[in-house]
Amino acid sequence: MANIMVGKNAAGAYSFYLPKRDLEDAIVTMEFDSTDKWGGEIRLNNGGVYYIEPQALPARFPISLRARRVDAAE
């Protein structure tokens, strides 16, 4: 499990930040993205895949979350 930060830019796209490795990237796809179910598998621009426990849509961004690494890039 890793601590990550999910942000939202002005255009409404999600961004991903992994403080431990100082990795910043765009989130290309997110499995669930509705008000009551949000999260699931997220795919990064660099090819990495993480899993966030599906939850209600966070009220505010950016937000720090716990995520599981499914498949890391590099």
Partner: peptide
């Protein structure tokens, strides 16, 4: 950038 991100999250 680290502290800026933290303030963005905690204090908006």
């Amino acid at each position: 950038n680290y502290i800026s991100r933290h303030m963005e999250e905690k204090y908006g």
